[in-house]
Write a protein that binds this DNA or RNA. Structure first.
Lengths: 206, 206
DNA sequence: CACCTCTTTCTACAGCTGTAGAAGCGCGAT
DNA sequence: ATCGCGCTTCTACAGCTGTAGAAAGAGGTG
Protein backbone atom coordinates (compact mmCIF):
# COMPACT_ATOMS: atom_id res chain seq x y z
CA UNK A 1 0.00 0.00 0.00
CA UNK A 2 1.28 3.41 -0.91
CA UNK A 3 1.72 5.85 1.89
CA UNK A 4 -0.66 8.69 2.25
CA UNK A 5 2.14 11.17 1.95
CA UNK A 6 2.91 10.08 -1.58
CA UNK A 7 -0.78 9.97 -2.52
CA UNK A 8 -1.20 13.51 -1.33
CA UNK A 9 1.96 14.93 -2.83
CA UNK A 10 1.44 13.16 -6.15
CA UNK A 11 -2.04 14.60 -6.38
CA UNK A 12 -0.54 17.98 -5.56
CA UNK A 13 1.95 17.65 -8.40
CA UNK A 14 -0.77 16.76 -10.87
CA UNK A 15 -2.86 19.65 -9.66
CA UNK A 16 -0.08 22.18 -10.01
CA UNK A 17 0.71 20.86 -13.46
CA UNK A 18 -2.90 21.24 -14.54
CA UNK A 19 -3.93 24.47 -12.89
CA UNK A 20 -0.78 26.13 -11.65
CA UNK A 21 0.11 27.02 -8.08
CA UNK A 22 -3.21 28.74 -7.73
CA UNK A 23 -5.01 25.43 -8.03
CA UNK A 24 -3.09 24.00 -5.12
CA UNK A 25 -5.48 24.08 -2.18
CA UNK A 26 -5.98 21.61 0.61
CA UNK A 27 -9.46 20.72 -0.51
CA UNK A 28 -8.53 20.41 -4.16
CA UNK A 29 -5.83 17.91 -3.26
CA UNK A 30 -8.33 15.90 -1.24
CA UNK A 31 -10.74 15.79 -4.14
CA UNK A 32 -8.07 14.98 -6.69
CA UNK A 33 -6.63 12.17 -4.58
CA UNK A 34 -10.04 10.80 -3.70
CA UNK A 35 -9.46 11.33 0.00
CA UNK A 36 -12.03 12.56 2.50
CA UNK A 37 -12.12 16.32 2.80
CA UNK A 38 -9.78 17.55 5.44
CA UNK A 39 -7.15 14.88 5.01
CA UNK A 40 -4.57 17.08 3.33
CA UNK A 41 -5.23 19.81 5.82
CA UNK A 42 -4.60 17.36 8.65
CA UNK A 43 -1.32 16.15 7.20
CA UNK A 44 -0.06 19.58 6.21
CA UNK A 45 -1.65 22.13 8.44
CA UNK A 46 -0.38 25.16 6.57
CA UNK A 47 -0.17 25.81 2.89
CA UNK A 48 3.53 26.42 3.20
CA UNK A 49 3.97 22.93 4.61
CA UNK A 50 1.99 21.49 1.72
CA UNK A 51 4.16 23.23 -0.85
CA UNK A 52 7.31 22.11 0.90
CA UNK A 53 6.06 18.53 0.85
CA UNK A 54 5.32 18.86 -2.84
CA UNK A 55 8.81 20.11 -3.54
CA UNK A 56 10.30 17.43 -1.35
CA UNK A 57 8.39 14.83 -3.31
CA UNK A 58 9.75 16.21 -6.57
CA UNK A 59 13.27 15.97 -5.19
CA UNK A 60 12.65 12.43 -3.94
CA UNK A 61 11.30 11.30 -7.29
CA UNK A 62 14.35 12.70 -9.01
CA UNK A 63 16.65 10.96 -6.58
CA UNK A 64 14.80 7.69 -7.11
CA UNK A 65 15.21 8.03 -10.86
CA UNK A 66 18.85 8.69 -10.43
CA UNK A 67 19.33 5.57 -8.34
CA UNK A 68 17.32 3.46 -10.75
CA UNK A 69 19.84 4.54 -13.37
CA UNK A 70 22.24 1.98 -11.97
CA UNK A 71 19.87 -0.94 -12.39
CA UNK A 72 20.29 -3.29 -15.34
CA UNK A 73 18.30 -2.16 -18.35
CA UNK A 74 15.56 -4.78 -17.98
CA UNK A 75 14.85 -3.65 -14.42
CA UNK A 76 14.91 0.00 -15.28
CA UNK A 77 11.71 1.82 -14.35
CA UNK A 78 9.18 2.90 -16.92
CA UNK A 79 10.00 6.45 -16.02
CA UNK A 80 13.03 7.58 -17.98
CA UNK A 81 15.43 10.01 -16.43
CA UNK A 82 19.11 10.66 -16.71
CA UNK A 83 20.42 7.30 -17.81
CA UNK A 84 24.10 6.87 -17.25
CA UNK A 85 25.83 8.34 -20.23
CA UNK A 86 28.65 6.62 -22.03
CA UNK A 87 30.19 9.56 -23.81
CA UNK A 88 31.87 7.42 -26.40
CA UNK A 89 30.91 9.80 -29.13
CA UNK A 90 29.34 13.20 -28.74
CA UNK A 91 26.55 12.36 -31.15
CA UNK A 92 25.31 9.34 -29.30
CA UNK A 93 25.47 11.33 -26.12
CA UNK A 94 23.43 14.10 -27.66
CA UNK A 95 20.83 11.60 -28.78
CA UNK A 96 20.67 10.20 -25.27
CA UNK A 97 20.14 13.58 -23.69
CA UNK A 98 17.58 14.46 -26.33
CA UNK A 99 15.68 11.29 -25.45
CA UNK A 100 15.67 12.33 -21.81
CA UNK A 101 14.36 15.78 -22.66
CA UNK A 102 11.66 14.26 -24.80
CA UNK A 103 10.70 11.98 -21.94
CA UNK A 104 10.35 14.97 -19.65
CA UNK A 105 7.99 16.42 -22.22
CA UNK A 106 5.79 13.36 -22.40
CA UNK A 107 5.90 10.90 -19.52
CA UNK A 108 7.25 13.47 -17.14
CA UNK A 109 5.21 16.42 -18.28
CA UNK A 110 3.44 16.93 -14.99
CA UNK A 111 6.62 16.76 -13.02
CA UNK A 112 8.31 19.19 -15.37
CA UNK A 113 5.50 21.70 -15.16
CA UNK A 114 5.31 21.40 -11.40
CA UNK A 115 9.04 21.86 -11.15
CA UNK A 116 9.06 25.07 -13.13
CA UNK A 117 6.15 26.36 -11.11
CA UNK A 118 8.07 25.61 -7.94
CA UNK A 119 11.22 27.22 -9.24
CA UNK A 120 9.24 30.37 -9.87
CA UNK A 121 7.72 30.08 -6.43
CA UNK A 122 11.20 29.73 -4.97
CA UNK A 123 11.84 33.30 -6.05
CA UNK A 124 9.83 34.50 -3.09
CA UNK A 125 10.40 31.46 -0.83
CA UNK A 126 14.12 30.68 -0.85
CA UNK A 127 13.74 27.64 1.42
CA UNK A 128 12.10 25.82 -1.47
CA UNK A 129 15.26 26.14 -3.47
CA UNK A 130 17.20 24.36 -0.76
CA UNK A 131 14.80 21.42 -0.81
CA UNK A 132 14.84 21.25 -4.59
CA UNK A 133 18.60 20.97 -4.37
CA UNK A 134 19.46 23.30 -7.24
CA UNK A 135 19.25 20.44 -9.72
CA UNK A 136 22.59 19.48 -8.24
CA UNK A 137 22.65 16.01 -9.76
CA UNK A 138 22.33 17.03 -13.40
CA UNK A 139 24.66 19.93 -12.78
CA UNK A 140 27.34 17.63 -11.40
CA UNK A 141 26.82 15.22 -14.26
CA UNK A 142 27.17 17.95 -16.83
CA UNK A 143 30.29 19.30 -15.18
CA UNK A 144 31.94 15.92 -15.07
CA UNK A 145 30.97 15.29 -18.65
CA UNK A 146 32.41 18.52 -19.93
CA UNK A 147 35.50 18.11 -17.83
CA UNK A 148 36.05 14.73 -19.47
CA UNK A 149 35.51 16.36 -22.84
CA UNK A 150 38.29 18.81 -22.03
CA UNK A 151 36.35 22.00 -21.49
CA UNK A 152 38.34 24.95 -20.29
CA UNK A 153 36.11 25.82 -17.33
CA UNK A 154 33.91 22.74 -16.91
CA UNK A 155 32.07 24.06 -13.86
CA UNK A 156 30.73 27.18 -15.48
CA UNK A 157 30.26 25.44 -18.80
CA UNK A 158 28.31 22.68 -17.07
CA UNK A 159 26.00 25.20 -15.49
CA UNK A 160 25.50 26.93 -18.80
CA UNK A 161 24.76 23.63 -20.44
CA UNK A 162 22.15 22.67 -17.87
CA UNK A 163 20.54 26.08 -18.10
CA UNK A 164 20.30 25.82 -21.87
CA UNK A 165 18.87 22.33 -21.78
CA UNK A 166 16.32 23.52 -19.25
CA UNK A 167 15.55 26.34 -21.63
CA UNK A 168 14.90 23.97 -24.48
CA UNK A 169 12.65 21.93 -22.23
CA UNK A 170 10.71 24.91 -20.93
CA UNK A 171 10.34 26.33 -24.40
CA UNK A 172 8.63 23.23 -25.68
CA UNK A 173 6.69 22.74 -22.52
CA UNK A 174 5.15 26.12 -22.09
CA UNK A 175 6.72 28.61 -24.41
CA UNK A 176 6.53 29.23 -28.08
CA UNK A 177 8.34 26.03 -28.90
CA UNK A 178 5.12 24.27 -28.12
CA UNK A 179 3.97 25.66 -31.46
CA UNK A 180 7.04 25.83 -33.66
CA UNK A 181 8.77 22.62 -32.64
CA UNK A 182 7.73 19.14 -33.71
CA UNK A 183 5.31 17.55 -31.24
CA UNK A 184 7.05 15.75 -28.38
CA UNK A 185 7.14 12.01 -28.34
CA UNK A 186 7.81 11.77 -32.05
CA UNK A 187 10.97 10.84 -33.85
CA UNK A 188 11.13 14.33 -35.37
CA UNK A 189 11.07 15.85 -31.93
CA UNK A 190 13.97 13.73 -30.89
CA UNK A 191 16.09 14.44 -33.96
CA UNK A 192 15.44 18.14 -33.62
CA UNK A 193 16.41 18.05 -29.97
CA UNK A 194 19.44 15.94 -30.80
CA UNK A 195 20.66 18.59 -33.18
CA UNK A 196 20.26 21.30 -30.59
CA UNK A 197 21.94 19.30 -27.86
CA UNK A 198 24.79 18.24 -30.11
CA UNK A 199 25.47 21.86 -30.96
CA UNK A 200 25.35 22.72 -27.27
CA UNK A 201 27.77 19.97 -26.36
CA UNK A 202 30.20 21.01 -29.06
CA UNK A 203 29.98 24.61 -27.98
CA UNK A 204 30.36 24.08 -24.26
CA UNK A 205 33.08 21.47 -24.40
CA UNK A 206 35.35 23.78 -26.39
CA UNK B 1 -1.14 61.79 -17.11
CA UNK B 2 -0.78 58.05 -17.49
CA UNK B 3 -3.82 56.07 -18.37
CA UNK B 4 -5.46 54.00 -15.74
CA UNK B 5 -5.00 50.91 -17.82
CA UNK B 6 -1.24 51.16 -17.61
CA UNK B 7 -1.33 51.99 -13.91
CA UNK B 8 -3.40 48.89 -13.26
CA UNK B 9 -1.46 46.53 -15.49
CA UNK B 10 1.90 47.78 -14.28
CA UNK B 11 0.84 47.19 -10.71
CA UNK B 12 -0.33 43.74 -11.77
CA UNK B 13 3.07 42.97 -13.26
CA UNK B 14 4.85 44.04 -10.10
CA UNK B 15 2.49 41.95 -8.01
CA UNK B 16 2.97 38.83 -10.08
CA UNK B 17 6.72 39.31 -9.94
CA UNK B 18 6.66 39.62 -6.17
CA UNK B 19 4.06 37.06 -5.18
CA UNK B 20 3.38 34.95 -8.22
CA UNK B 21 0.08 34.49 -10.03
CA UNK B 22 -1.55 33.71 -6.73
CA UNK B 23 -0.97 37.23 -5.54
CA UNK B 24 -2.83 38.66 -8.49
CA UNK B 25 -6.25 39.66 -7.17
CA UNK B 26 -8.42 42.62 -8.01
CA UNK B 27 -8.09 44.11 -4.55
CA UNK B 28 -4.36 43.55 -4.33
CA UNK B 29 -3.88 45.46 -7.58
CA UNK B 30 -5.97 48.32 -6.24
CA UNK B 31 -3.89 48.49 -3.09
CA UNK B 32 -0.60 48.20 -4.91
CA UNK B 33 -1.51 50.91 -7.40
CA UNK B 34 -2.94 53.19 -4.73
CA UNK B 35 -6.34 53.17 -6.37
CA UNK B 36 -9.67 53.03 -4.54
CA UNK B 37 -10.87 49.50 -3.89
CA UNK B 38 -13.00 48.24 -6.69
CA UNK B 39 -11.25 50.10 -9.48
CA UNK B 40 -9.50 47.11 -10.97
CA UNK B 41 -12.65 45.08 -10.64
CA UNK B 42 -14.54 47.75 -12.57
CA UNK B 43 -12.00 47.88 -15.38
CA UNK B 44 -11.55 44.13 -15.64
CA UNK B 45 -14.66 42.46 -14.42
CA UNK B 46 -13.30 38.94 -14.49
CA UNK B 47 -9.97 37.62 -13.40
CA UNK B 48 -9.38 36.22 -16.85
CA UNK B 49 -9.77 39.70 -18.31
CA UNK B 50 -7.27 41.04 -15.81
CA UNK B 51 -4.70 38.42 -16.73
CA UNK B 52 -5.21 39.06 -20.40
CA UNK B 53 -4.67 42.75 -19.84
CA UNK B 54 -1.49 41.97 -17.94
CA UNK B 55 -0.19 39.84 -20.78
CA UNK B 56 -1.21 42.43 -23.32
CA UNK B 57 0.73 45.03 -21.37
CA UNK B 58 3.81 42.82 -21.37
CA UNK B 59 3.53 42.47 -25.12
CA UNK B 60 3.02 46.21 -25.55
CA UNK B 61 6.05 47.03 -23.45
CA UNK B 62 8.15 44.67 -25.52
CA UNK B 63 6.91 46.21 -28.72
CA UNK B 64 7.67 49.69 -27.40
CA UNK B 65 11.21 48.64 -26.56
CA UNK B 66 11.62 47.21 -29.98
CA UNK B 67 10.51 50.41 -31.64
CA UNK B 68 12.72 52.49 -29.39
CA UNK B 69 15.58 50.45 -30.75
CA UNK B 70 15.48 52.55 -33.89
CA UNK B 71 15.91 55.82 -32.07
CA UNK B 72 19.32 57.47 -31.97
CA UNK B 73 21.35 56.35 -29.00
CA UNK B 74 20.88 59.56 -27.02
CA UNK B 75 17.10 59.25 -27.22
CA UNK B 76 17.07 55.59 -26.39
CA UNK B 77 14.91 54.74 -23.36
CA UNK B 78 16.42 53.89 -20.01
CA UNK B 79 14.97 50.46 -20.40
CA UNK B 80 17.33 48.29 -22.41
CA UNK B 81 15.95 45.68 -24.71
CA UNK B 82 17.10 44.11 -27.91
CA UNK B 83 19.20 46.86 -29.41
CA UNK B 84 19.83 46.50 -33.07
CA UNK B 85 22.77 44.22 -33.45
CA UNK B 86 25.62 44.86 -35.82
CA UNK B 87 27.06 41.40 -36.17
CA UNK B 88 30.44 42.62 -37.30
CA UNK B 89 32.17 40.15 -35.09
CA UNK B 90 30.59 37.31 -33.18
CA UNK B 91 32.25 38.34 -29.95
CA UNK B 92 30.90 41.84 -29.90
CA UNK B 93 27.50 40.44 -30.72
CA UNK B 94 27.72 38.00 -27.85
CA UNK B 95 28.66 40.81 -25.49
CA UNK B 96 25.66 42.78 -26.70
CA UNK B 97 23.25 39.95 -26.13
CA UNK B 98 24.80 39.26 -22.75
CA UNK B 99 24.20 42.88 -21.79
CA UNK B 100 20.57 42.53 -22.76
CA UNK B 101 20.20 39.38 -20.67
CA UNK B 102 21.81 41.11 -17.73
CA UNK B 103 19.41 44.01 -18.15
CA UNK B 104 16.48 41.63 -18.03
CA UNK B 105 17.89 40.33 -14.76
CA UNK B 106 18.18 43.75 -13.18
CA UNK B 107 16.12 46.58 -14.63
CA UNK B 108 13.64 44.21 -16.18
CA UNK B 109 13.48 41.68 -13.41
CA UNK B 110 9.79 42.17 -12.71
CA UNK B 111 8.85 41.92 -16.32
CA UNK B 112 10.94 38.80 -16.74
CA UNK B 113 9.39 37.10 -13.75
CA UNK B 114 5.91 38.07 -14.81
CA UNK B 115 6.57 36.81 -18.29
CA UNK B 116 7.67 33.38 -17.12
CA UNK B 117 4.68 33.19 -14.82
CA UNK B 118 2.41 34.01 -17.75
CA UNK B 119 4.11 31.50 -20.00
CA UNK B 120 3.43 28.85 -17.40
CA UNK B 121 -0.13 30.06 -17.12
CA UNK B 122 -0.47 29.84 -20.89
CA UNK B 123 -0.15 26.09 -20.53
CA UNK B 124 -3.74 25.91 -19.37
CA UNK B 125 -4.94 29.07 -21.14
CA UNK B 126 -3.74 28.95 -24.74
CA UNK B 127 -5.26 32.32 -25.64
CA UNK B 128 -2.57 33.95 -23.51
CA UNK B 129 0.08 32.57 -25.79
CA UNK B 130 -1.52 34.30 -28.75
CA UNK B 131 -1.44 37.66 -27.00
CA UNK B 132 2.16 37.16 -25.89
CA UNK B 133 3.02 36.58 -29.52
CA UNK B 134 5.39 33.65 -29.01
CA UNK B 135 8.32 35.98 -28.53
CA UNK B 136 8.09 36.39 -32.26
CA UNK B 137 10.34 39.42 -32.44
CA UNK B 138 13.40 37.90 -30.81
CA UNK B 139 12.79 34.70 -32.70
CA UNK B 140 12.77 36.49 -36.03
CA UNK B 141 15.86 38.43 -35.07
CA UNK B 142 17.72 35.29 -34.10
CA UNK B 143 16.69 33.55 -37.29
CA UNK B 144 17.85 36.42 -39.45
CA UNK B 145 21.07 36.64 -37.55
CA UNK B 146 21.90 32.99 -37.90
CA UNK B 147 20.87 33.01 -41.53
CA UNK B 148 23.34 35.82 -42.12
CA UNK B 149 25.97 33.83 -40.28
CA UNK B 150 25.39 30.98 -42.69
CA UNK B 151 23.62 28.48 -40.47
CA UNK B 152 22.36 25.39 -42.20
CA UNK B 153 18.78 25.58 -40.90
CA UNK B 154 18.50 29.12 -39.53
CA UNK B 155 14.84 28.81 -38.54
CA UNK B 156 15.27 25.86 -36.26
CA UNK B 157 18.65 27.07 -35.05
CA UNK B 158 17.15 30.46 -34.27
CA UNK B 159 14.44 28.87 -32.18
CA UNK B 160 17.00 26.76 -30.36
CA UNK B 161 19.09 29.80 -29.73
CA UNK B 162 16.23 31.78 -28.27
CA UNK B 163 15.19 28.87 -26.10
CA UNK B 164 18.71 28.52 -24.73
CA UNK B 165 19.05 32.21 -24.04
CA UNK B 166 15.73 32.11 -22.25
CA UNK B 167 17.06 29.18 -20.28
CA UNK B 168 20.11 31.12 -19.19
CA UNK B 169 17.88 33.98 -18.15
CA UNK B 170 15.43 31.80 -16.24
CA UNK B 171 18.22 29.93 -14.56
CA UNK B 172 19.69 33.09 -13.09
CA UNK B 173 16.34 34.57 -12.35
CA UNK B 174 14.74 31.75 -10.47
CA UNK B 175 16.74 28.59 -10.77
CA UNK B 176 19.98 27.43 -9.32
CA UNK B 177 21.96 29.92 -11.32
CA UNK B 178 20.74 32.50 -8.87
CA UNK B 179 23.21 30.88 -6.50
CA UNK B 180 26.08 29.60 -8.63
CA UNK B 181 26.36 32.43 -11.11
CA UNK B 182 27.89 35.82 -10.40
CA UNK B 183 25.29 38.33 -9.22
CA UNK B 184 23.53 40.14 -12.06
CA UNK B 185 24.42 43.69 -12.80
CA UNK B 186 28.11 43.13 -12.27
CA UNK B 187 30.87 42.96 -14.84
CA UNK B 188 31.49 39.32 -13.89
CA UNK B 189 27.92 38.48 -14.65
CA UNK B 190 28.24 39.99 -18.07
CA UNK B 191 31.52 38.30 -18.94
CA UNK B 192 30.14 34.98 -17.80
CA UNK B 193 27.04 35.46 -19.89
CA UNK B 194 29.13 36.63 -22.82
CA UNK B 195 31.07 33.40 -22.74
CA UNK B 196 27.91 31.34 -22.74
CA UNK B 197 26.28 33.33 -25.51
CA UNK B 198 29.42 33.30 -27.62
CA UNK B 199 29.55 29.53 -27.38
CA UNK B 200 25.88 29.35 -28.30
CA UNK B 201 26.32 31.59 -31.30
CA UNK B 202 29.27 29.59 -32.55
CA UNK B 203 27.38 26.36 -32.10
CA UNK B 204 24.11 27.41 -33.69
CA UNK B 205 25.56 29.26 -36.63
CA UNK B 206 27.50 26.19 -37.73
C1' DC C 1 -13.50 -6.12 28.96
C1' DA C 2 -12.06 -1.08 29.89
C1' DC C 3 -8.54 2.14 28.90
C1' DC C 4 -5.43 4.93 26.52
C1' DT C 5 -3.09 6.69 22.46
C1' DC C 6 -2.68 7.68 17.76
C1' DT C 7 -4.70 8.32 13.46
C1' DT C 8 -8.38 9.70 10.68
C1' DT C 9 -12.52 12.28 9.71
C1' DC C 10 -15.62 16.07 10.38
C1' DT C 11 -17.00 20.74 11.53
C1' DA C 12 -16.40 25.64 12.46
C1' DC C 13 -15.10 30.06 11.29
C1' DA C 14 -12.81 34.21 10.05
C1' DG C 15 -10.99 36.27 6.17
C1' DC C 16 -10.36 36.65 1.24
C1' DT C 17 -11.86 36.45 -3.78
C1' DG C 18 -14.59 36.96 -7.89
C1' DT C 19 -18.29 39.19 -9.62
C1' DA C 20 -22.35 42.06 -9.98
C1' DG C 21 -24.96 45.94 -9.36
C1' DA C 22 -26.12 50.32 -6.96
C1' DA C 23 -24.80 54.88 -5.80
C1' DG C 24 -22.29 59.02 -6.68
C1' DC C 25 -20.16 62.41 -9.51
C1' DG C 26 -18.38 65.46 -13.35
C1' DC C 27 -19.78 67.66 -17.36
C1' DG C 28 -21.39 68.86 -21.76
C1' DA C 29 -25.86 69.49 -24.23
C1' DT C 30 -30.30 71.34 -23.94
C1' DA D 1 -30.50 74.90 -14.20
C1' DT D 2 -31.71 70.51 -15.56
C1' DC D 3 -31.18 66.51 -17.77
C1' DG D 4 -28.68 62.55 -19.42
C1' DC D 5 -24.59 59.90 -19.78
C1' DG D 6 -20.28 57.96 -19.02
C1' DC D 7 -16.86 57.24 -15.71
C1' DT D 8 -15.69 56.24 -10.98
C1' DT D 9 -16.42 54.62 -6.39
C1' DC D 10 -18.82 51.87 -3.02
C1' DT D 11 -21.35 47.94 -1.25
C1' DA D 12 -23.25 43.30 -1.28
C1' DC D 13 -22.86 38.53 -1.40
C1' DA D 14 -22.05 33.81 -2.37
C1' DG D 15 -18.41 30.75 -2.54
C1' DC D 16 -13.74 29.37 -1.50
C1' DT D 17 -9.40 29.03 1.44
C1' DG D 18 -6.43 28.48 5.36
C1' DT D 19 -6.33 26.89 9.74
C1' DA D 20 -7.74 25.04 14.16
C1' DG D 21 -9.99 22.08 17.06
C1' DA D 22 -13.66 18.60 18.13
C1' DA D 23 -15.51 14.09 17.21
C1' DA D 24 -15.04 9.51 15.83
C1' DG D 25 -12.61 5.41 15.13
C1' DA D 26 -8.70 1.70 15.28
C1' DG D 27 -5.70 -0.88 17.63
C1' DG D 28 -2.84 -2.29 21.15
C1' DT D 29 -2.21 -3.17 26.54
C1' DG D 30 -3.38 -4.29 31.02
Amino acid sequence: MVSRYTVITDAAIALVAEQGMRGLTHRAVDARAGLPTGTTSAYYRTRKALIEALVQRLADLDRADLEARDLPADQAPAYPHDRRFTPADLDGLAAGIAAVIDAWLTTGRDRSLARYACLLEATHHPELRDILGHGAASRAQARALLAAAGARDPDRAGDHFVACVDGLLFDRLAGAGALTAPPPGTAESRTDLTRAVRALLRAMSG
